[in-house]
Design a protein around this nucleic acid. Sequence first.
DNA 1: AAACCGGCCATTTTT
DNA 2: TGGCCGGTTT
Length: 745
Amino acid sequence: MDQQLPDLLADLTNAQREAVSHMDGPLLILAAAGSGKTRVITRRVAWLLQQGVRASNILAITFTNKAAGEMRQRVEDLVPGNRVMIRTFHSFGATMLRQYADRLSLDRNFTIYDSDDRNKIVKQAFEATGMDNTSFTPERIGGAISKAKNKLILPDQYGRESSDFFTQTVARVYPIYQKKLRDANAMDFDDLLFLPALALKTNAELRAELDARFRYVLIDEYQDTNQAQYELARKLSMDFRNLCVVGDPDQSIYGWRGSDIKNILDFETDFPDTKVVLLDKNYRSTQAILSAAGSLISHNKYRKKKPLITDNERGDPVRLWSYDTGLDEANQIAGRIKQSVANREYRYGDVAVFVRINALTRSLEQAFAKHGVPFQIVKGFAFFDRKENKDVLAYLRVIVNPHDDLSFTRIVNEPARGIGKTSVEHLRRFAEENQLSMLQACAHVARITEIKGKAAIALKNFAAMIAQLQTKLELQPHEIIEEVIDKSGYREMLHAGKNPEDEERLANIEELISAAREYGEGNAAGTLGDYLEQITLASDVDGWNDQQDCVSVMTLHSSKGLEFPIVHILAVEEGILPHQRSMRSDSPDELEEERRLLFVGMTRAKKQLHLSHARNRDFRGQFLLAVSSGFLNELPSDEIEHHAETRHANRTLSHDMYRGGSKQADDAWDDTGVSRSGAVVNTIKTDAGVEYFEGQIVQHEQYGIGQITSVGGFGALRKLKIRFATQGEKTFVAEKVKLKVVARK
DNA sequence: AAACCGGCCATTTTT
DNA sequence: TGGCCGGTTT
């Protein structure tokens, strides 16, 4: 080997070396959490280059753009100046669609619609079917279409397989939805996988070409691929079967959006001569953390059994915290972090807080602010969701893609130009009848008799302004934004400033401009279209700055692939983790996925792991009962240290701060059937032998967690009143109702 | 045409 | 709790 090249294998374990230096043929790397997976992939890319494989023949797929960037950097450090394509699946799909647009009869300037856009188009498509209002939300119908695309089901195929009313509805919406997207020259997220996968399936020539172009394909987080992604991977690896996939079935957490854990479990069947490498040693976490995580995940039935091993020290026990309220939880965690940093035990940047749902970040935000703890919420681009920024982006979209009627409608009267709803509807109808985009239709506004003088002139002027802006397309993105807010009158509108928040809006746009400028500096060749694509395809973690010394707050899903010395996981409670929606008795898979989600969160921790729950939680403005998650009972007691942070001293005071219910909830905490006051409560026993009593906490299939507020009646008429966490109070016949008594320890 | 108001609703996770 | 829709007023 050339002495000047870095020795890429020297510091690896045997298993890692085997994975890195495998040359041709399919390769499956089963990599347990913390087993040095990223290192192996980057090393492997570098090793292939060192063996003389051309950079342009390698394709590496990661799960987030951030991961792609990091991998690019690490490969660059090992083999400077290479041009390996490292992308997310979606970004790869978008690139292919643009690159081969002509051969696929597509317009390469397509807009990428996000889920908000998608739901709006679904709504329009639903209305176009002429069906009556059903109870199906656009989100639900859109979700079904998304799943169909992930399974590569075409609009007309969907109709043939539809049976019940919901799928029949979807079957009617789906074709119209898809046509609307094509008319607007827009792709939804799923199209970025769906269309390339279909193209590779039906266009043999293109498939062979791309297969030869990407001779070596590496895919990270393979356990989270869906059928469309699977198809892409396969079709790129038929003539050149050098497909390397890396993943861990125990970390599959995207089943809800169509990913199929079978892809990784069946890989060896799909590729019979697969070489399998097991990376099972963990280099990340302490023994205590691993043993707790391992004990939890061993409760999953649908799973290959495998031990979690490490040479690391035992370390601190996993700490389990009980709080009276969610507010206490947030405040005490903030306080303890602050104290530990003051004691120089660790830095703020070492700490991460994970939550199951985004709504839970709010209390943390307040608590951290109150205690003066620096933090960042990894909800990356909430910034681009602000109205003013969405408006500006809509202008940019229309400039790049004049067919984008959705964006056109958003901005045609923003700022107000005297173009009202009715005029816009007339324009839309005319455009539809004449197969034009709404922007194109503006040129023929004189022919639309319903649109009168003022509105007609305004539309003409609007179209002229867009045309004028389109001549600026070769400018840098941030310069175009400046043009947009000047020429459109947006800046003027905000400057006129009637509302106090106008100033803030202007500041937000300024921030958008500097973000665009920053983008331009890093991507000198980046067009406006590239910039828009980057924004739309950005994930939450892509906006996360890991250099800052502050606490990171994020969802468990976002935490995948990351690691932190100190990890807190909040609200490990029934209904939250596992989430209500996953607890239907007919879907054990979903419950297992929730368990994997907690497993992923736990295995992010290197040194300290804190799990917590509260007995009462503020949710949606209501103060509700909370019960610790059954998952906590699946942890090994000898690795766990319990901390009950109750506030007995000022219990009454704390209760006075909230609306009713919490006193009862506290009484209910004793599992004795006897309230704290000592009074015996009503108890009834059903014929099936189940005993119910007041104050007991139960779970109903449909309504979720609740507390029995009263029992009464005799014989077949015995009734239970149950107050549910989210559904209010309901009455049931004790013999009939199916309840699960929530067990606690 | 636009601003304003009040009621109703849902309410996981994300590219 | 707040975001959205639909209706009403100016």
